[in-house]
Design a binder for these strands. Sequence first.
RNA 1: GCCCAGGUGGUGGAACUGGUAGACACAAGGGACUUAAAAUCCCUUGGGCAAUUUGUCCGUGCGGGUUCAAGUCCCGCCCUGGGCACCA
Length: 822
Amino acid sequence: MAERDYNFTEIERKWQKKWDDEKAYLTKKDDSKKKFYVLEMFPYPSGRLHMGHVRNYTIGDLYSRFLRMNGYNVFHPIGWDSFGLPAENAAIKNNIPPLKWTADNIDHMKQQLKRLGFSYDWTKELATYRPEYYRWNQWAFVKMLEKGLAYKKKALVNWCGTCNTVLANEQAEGGVCWRCETEVVQKELEQWFFKITAYADDLLKGHAELEKGWPEQVLTMQRNWIGRSTGVMINFKTESGEDFPIFTTRPDTVYGVTFMVIAPEHPFLERVKDPKVKAFIEKLKNQSMIDRTSDDKEKEGIDSGLKIINPFNGDKVPLFVGNFVLMNYGSGAIMAVPAHDTRDFAFAKKYGIPVKIVIDNPKAPLDVKTMTDAYVDNGVCVNSGPFDGVSNRDAIEKIADYCEKQGIGKREINYRIRDWGISRQRYWGCPIPIIYCDKCGAVPVPEKDLPVVLPTDVDFKGDSVSPLTRMDSFVKAKCPKCGADARRETDTMDTFVDSSWYFAKFTSPGSKEMFDKEMVDYWMPVDQYIGGIEHAVLHLLYARFFTMVLNDLGILKCREPFTRLLTQGMVIKDGAKMSKSKGNVVDPDEIIARYGADTVRLFMLFAAPPQKDLDWSDKGVEGSYRFVSRVWRFVNRHADKYVKNSAVDASALTDGLKKIRTELHRTIKIVTGDIAEKMQYNTAIARMMELVNTLYQADEKEFDTEAGKKVISEVFDKLIPMLSPFMPHAAEELWETLGNTDMLVFRAWPGYIEELTKRGEIEIVFQVNGKIRAKEMVPSDITKEDMEKMAREHPRMKEITDGKQIVKVVVIPGKLVNIVVK
RNA sequence: GCCCAGGUGGUGGAACUGGUAGACACAAGGGACUUAAAAUCCCUUGGGCAAUUUGUCCGUGCGGGUUCAAGUCCCGCCCUGGGCACCA
């Protein structure tokens, strides 16, 4: 048969159109099948797809196609996370309206996704910048307001001077902006917050459900971020008898308090008159958070001159102002026990504060004079009044009990996580549906008036102030309560709000309610979510929070949105993440033009397992192309021998054909396992490459025999469908070449016959004292006894063991014989 | 400092619950085809030593250990990547 060129451009276009025409990926509710929701994190429409996207979506697509072929009703949608700063920055810089910029980018990237042949149900496409989407942001906001889960407060917030907006704590980790890495400063502003702290415990408890399906690392990161700690709020007293509460996790050390430390922002300090202390407080307040909390920063403090009284022993101790105490955790002040806390110890040494031991080491009694560091291990209470002699572990509970009984304190749980600040002083986002009235205050926009539409006829003056603030037509409004003239909120929502529920919206993008109940109940939760690990405490935490809130509102049936999570590695080149600044970006379009989408997809799956970083290699891509071409050539060369559904007569096979058949069935078995259980696509491909190598090495003449034709037909019937999730276009074309009229996308995943996966002959190893001394081919059904006999009689083995005493013989069936001699 | 993950040829990466280390691919070398090149197909390829088939020793970050047998398990260290780090 004449060999055809592998014209991938034409082939790929042809099949993309056919899939479209046949509505191959359209999804419907179907109770006869098990549902499976596969989702990749939706992209921000930055303008062009990058390799990270291609990898992410290829992994999801492979899995979707595989599951579809295995009889699942697969839901695989895609959309656009299309609010956010880049659009606005582009507007300021190039004078393109954000709406146009965004819509154009979406158009372009959509074409790119289509060119890659991903099996999305495009009828479910959504974009967060559309009013019909974000009106539900607003609706949810109002609901949360009603439930007390959204509120406004004046607070110290993270301000990024480059982005000109406030950031949530999760977005300012390490004191820098998550987007542009500018150092974040603290500003006091009126801001809207979501009360994620109310769900801190739920978010932690939910982890139990996720342990099977989420990477341990992500759960750990979330656990650390939430930072639950149990302790006691103890009421110390000021000299004038006022309460001075502090939170501690170590009530067992309360008798060892020799000073207290308070945050510089604490209102309690307003009474300080000493100018030296006041100056110090001002200095600290003006330091950025990164300065104040960076690890190499020395702990600094000053004696405020005020004294605090310990309710346990009446000790009167100095109150210091310290740079390391945080206003927004606990009560903004701490008790300090230098003898048993390393930080307190260092601070006490620096400022000459006494050290008082209250937990002694039973094995080696402590001495204040010779201590060089705090004693932080367990021990026995001393100098602790009625608690002397109690082990400090027990004392923690006993002293907590005592506090509660005496009314000088109570048990409390504190969290590190703070409420989620969602106000952004930017234009290109979802308007916060609030109207400010002088009489009625902040009034939510009534449901019937939603959505508050973001005006698109805006004028960027080139400054970085949100144009909304200057737009009278937007700002001026009537108070929904009293009808008086009022002002609209001009801040927009954090774009992480948009992405906190989009996965559920895919189930019914056009619904009249937030979701179509039937559809959302049917599809949710997402069974397999795929994306980068960088969202571990951002998107993934927010989305869980939102899902819980919507669950409590009765809108969602599930409480956890993502049953399983795969965090895929980055695509790197020359040892670094692909980025414009490093100049190591590879453009997907170029590679598709040169090798075709199937090759790109194959390479993405072959070069590394999904969880690991993937090293881009031009040569490696060529290798993938070579494989696609090898398959192409082989099938075309032997297409004329294909007989559909021909039954192989096992007894009529030559050894060569038998081997091919065994390898075929083995391959199906291994590939199926690699995809379904291990999610290890690189080895699945390697295994198929081996099979193709076997086919090439076979004696071609055999394929012309009757038996040969049947074997080759069986190979095609199974190999080509098996390849189709990896290289869908080429597989369809080859399938059609064979004269088949059905499409592989509707075909079932090939099965295998267990009996046929067993090789007739296997190689076993003979060892002496664990060292390999000989190898032999034997029938695979050889008995243990025969193996041992062969090993003992093998001339080489005899030679080595000759004259030595055989201590023991270990036989592992089908593997090896080890003769142990002395 | 603490908690994870990892360290395997020149390279990316394989190796089931301990049982032939290096699958598959890239690169390199050789051969076939070709006027030539590309493409393609085939072969070799962890290192050392000796050699005719072949034999033999070393080898999965380092040092110990358990075991008939260790990349895999245990103990101690080194390095890389990631997370957490004044949260009281």
